[in-house]
Design a protein around this nucleic acid. Structure first.
Lengths: 249, 249
DNA sequence: ATAATTTTTGCATGATTTTGCGGCTTTTAC
DNA sequence: GTAAAAGCCGCAAAATCATGCAAAAATTAT
């Protein structure tokens, strides 16, 4: 097999899966791991892919852990995103946090719907910029390496000067008793500020995350106006939330 | 068998299978490997196929996927990025604008180099977040849909509160007489603020962009401390810039 | 037709590239 | 912290390549 063939195969795999392991490549190509390593090194030098520990990834910006998110969760998130988009209307000014669910929402916004969206999430911002009618304002600040999410005083401060129609909070853990919780202190500071800045608070959550509690608390359930899940609004799993004054969809 | 016939056979094989091995050709043509080698060499000189180690491939083999921009510019940008990275040192606080050249710089920063980087560019920020030792602060504001770049009063205002070691300006057009120019009014506001916020201004420019002028002016050459191109610092194309008090690398 | 000339081909030789392996360092995970 | 995995470096074997040269083949001239 020619070196060119190998490298093309590697590139194809990378583009297809966004991420490949050197071991798998060495396996399916029947060459030593060193050879694959050298190939990847070469391709990386030409900027055809990005070399990472143990493998390689594509250069696209949407290559964040795409593989480990199971398809099963993905379909739920799409269902949630559909419901969420139905809440939006022309000319609104909204806030969107980060997370994969909010990314799905961004992808699903109709191309002709004019909105103004504030967000501290790089991924969401990137996705929203594909929509010509959406004005995107990034809430700048120190970026978290893993979440690609801006946190810190600057963000909170900017938010304190806003009064928007709606805020859509994506990630987070939800429990009827303990409310909305997170595992990152800095993130809850931002989310609290987002809630304060919005007239309405919409929470998106796949049912798997319901009834789970993390270290830090963002807010009580009383602060939430709408809860969006992939479930039917009458599902018994949601019973715990019915005592509160919120809309289930 | 005539030479012409052989070469036609070789070309047919290449077009059919996208790749051939010299050994196979020598085998099926019943000629020595050297003859085949010579044939392939000749065909490669006429650009009929691409010669690779051990065989030949058709031209469209590797690049069915469109690389953004031409490879020719890409290599220049990589050269510039290499020089630029050599200007960086541990612990510095810097500003980076957007553009593909600055992206290359971000990609080339060593994994272990600790920096603090402010940027209004989504792409640059995204790339910098791959580096664990780099603290990334996004300068938030209204995002331009095409450039994925934050502009507006918020950005300028944030910049006015900064005093950083160096600012690295990527895109833009450069001319010895007219200085640094842009085609977007909002962008030059940001770039001017970046220059004001930095002790040193570094300009990156591929030689193709030298001596070209756009509508709006960011600054004079006198404001520039270092000019990085892919050329040798002694290249005569840079002569026009020598009268100014700047470093050419 | 035959000799002279040019082109092509095959082979030997040494240079270059590619590849896998072992030892050793770095990174990651627990 | 420590163990395991991954990466890096240098080396040597194998494969491929370039070059020179002489024989074979084809072309041309006489």
């Amino acid at each position: 097999m020619l070196k060119e063939e190998r490298q093309k195969f590697i590139l194809d795999q990378v583009h297809l899966h966004h991420r490949v392991l050197l071991n798998d490549l060495s396996d399916s190509l029947n060459v030593s791991i060193d050879t694959v390593r050298r190939d990847v090194k070469e391709l990386a030098k030409d900027r055809k892919l990005k070399k990472v520990h143990g493998g390689a990834t594509s250069f696209g910006f949407m290559n964040f852990r795409k593989d480990e998110g199971n398809v099963y969760l993905q379909s739920k998130k799409i269902a949630i995103a559909e419901k969420t988009v139905s809440l939006l209307s022309e000319g609104q000014v909204i806030l969107m946090s980060g997370g994969t669910t909010n990314m799905e929402v961004a992808k699903m916004i109709p191309k002709k719907l004019a909105l103004t969206v504030f967000t501290p999430s790089l991924h969401v911002a990137m996705e929203l910029l594909e929509l010509p009618e959406v004005e995107v304002i990034f809430l700048g600040g120190k970026l978290l390496h893993d979440a690609k999410f801006a946190v810190g005083g600057t963000v909170v401060n900017s938010l304190s000067q806003l009064r928007v129609d709606m805020c859509i909070l994506g990630t987070g853990y939800l429990d009827a008793v303990h409310g909305l919780t997170e595992f990152d202190w800095e993130v809850i500071q931002v989310k609290q500020a987002m809630i304060r800045a919005a007239k309405k608070t919409v929470i998106l959550s796949v049912s798997d995350k319901l009834h789970s509690v993390q270290k830090y608390k963002t807010c009580d359930m009383t602060a939430v106006n709408t809860l969006v899940t992939e479930l039917d609004p009458n599902d018994e799993l949601l019973d715990a939330f019915r005592p509160y004054d919120l809309t289930l969809i």
